[in-house]
Design a protein around this nucleic acid. Sequence first.
DNA 1: CCTCCGCCAACTGTTGACAGATGGCAGTCC
DNA 2: GGACTGCCATCTGTCAACAGTTGGCGGAGG
Lengths: 276, 276
Amino acid sequence: MAVRIGTLRAMEDMSQAERGTAPSALEIVRTRSLASLVAQEIERMILSGALPAGERLNEQQLAAQLRVSRGPVREAVRGLERSGLVVAVRNQGSYVRTVSAQEALEIYDLRAAITGLACARLAESASPAQMAALRALVKRMDTARRADDPPSYYAANLEFHAALLGFGGGPRSQRLYEDLGNELHLFRRRALVQPENMRESNAEHAAILKAIAAGDAPAARAAGEAHIAGGKRRFRATDTTTTPGKGRKGENDDDQDDPSPPPADGRRGGRTRRAD
Amino acid sequence: MAVRIGTLRAMEDMSQAERGTAPSALEIVRTRSLASLVAQEIERMILSGALPAGERLNEQQLAAQLRVSRGPVREAVRGLERSGLVVAVRNQGSYVRTVSAQEALEIYDLRAAITGLACARLAESASPAQMAALRALVKRMDTARRADDPPSYYAANLEFHAALLGFGGGPRSQRLYEDLGNELHLFRRRALVQPENMRESNAEHAAILKAIAAGDAPAARAAGEAHIAGGKRRFRATDTTTTPGKGRKGENDDDQDDPSPPPADGRRGGRTRRAD
DNA sequence: CCTCCGCCAACTGTTGACAGATGGCAGTCC
DNA sequence: GGACTGCCATCTGTCAACAGTTGGCGGAGG
């Protein structure tokens, strides 16, 4: 109803409608709040390693760095706290969360379970278009592997898993998988993807697609779980703290409550000159 | 070292040491921030139904009601936004999240997957003490069922699942299961637990424990998944929107982006007199 | 020389205040 | 009489300032 009523409004709807394009800066300001942008930026800093695990988050330093007030920074940090990327101690500050080896293994298991679920469902419901998209991603990864281009492989791998979870699981599963992956990043910075690993990993991807294409739900589930288990194994192979494992799964006695919330030496206060 | 050095400090340590007891109000203020308490309170309001799904969260009204400033309220809401309980729209406000039927089913599947995982691991690692604790909880539920006491059953059920996830999965799994359960609460207020459901549910609990005690990991996993699947089925039986399902699993075409962020009529601004 | 106490700087927690946006209501112009 | 425009109350987004706490450093005392 009404054709020319509010051309401005119409323009807004248009620019909102066209997704995927560059969000045009003005639209960003109009739709996202400062706090959400700050959260996104801090999250990026953490995942990129600029803020390593255990690091303290200085509110006013971050605020000054991002040219905003402390309010949005605090709101952003509260959000990141809920999502498990940082831990906060009252009157002391927030720290980038440290993930123990045991927690990392647990997260791998969770990812395996939900990936298997998505694969199984996808085996019963995959559309030709979805299969084509997944196959194209595997092809991209294969190309990146041959070119020995780990960054490209890594990006395509992320897309593949996101598509897998989105098609087979749903938006909630997708977000969960992403969050778990982010937490995993906190355990020891190590983006090194070796050529052998790439080949092995992509072979598992192909196996997943094969089972899905065959409509074999149990096989697809097993393949999906095996893939994440393979990632867990490859992850352990490059790590020292997890290899001297006590035979199998760490028996979790219930005597550990908090594994030291303020993990490192909290250098704060005092008469130390500020770091500029 | 030093006996009477700082009796106050010593007292604080003492009160911190005694866990499980009433947190003594003063200790709460000293360890938890206002924002976290506000978040806890708002979360309670949402889960209890005082703030129904789709409801708008008025910041200053909440601030006035809780006798705090808007700052902590905003921080709390940002946290709840990250955890999926509320959605925020810029310059318009935050709303209690509405969960669609399809999302609810997806969440059930996720819970089934991680519950199955925990059961399988527990089948290989359960200690006698853990088994005893789980058996005691099943017994409590059975007692509650005989007494036709749904609230007690409900509470024990929560404890049972928390223990299951904590023993077999770990803290991360436990928290995840809890969060998913909270989201599920947002789909249609319906705490009605029928006697038949209680019996069926607890029978499934017993089946899980039997498989775990036998050390049969695949069987334990299947039992755990079947239990959540049973919950999903019982849930569907009491709901109308999910029963006219199209055969199987809703095929998720990618044409739905956001299912209306401002869900209801956002009554704001204008010259309406405020609701006191 | 060692121990202990007081001081102080830096930081977090919280509040109050200001600017901008939103959406309904009423008056006004065709 | 219907549609539109301006106005205004309400609320959110953001900022700046105040109060309280923390933890190390230096001086006083033994």
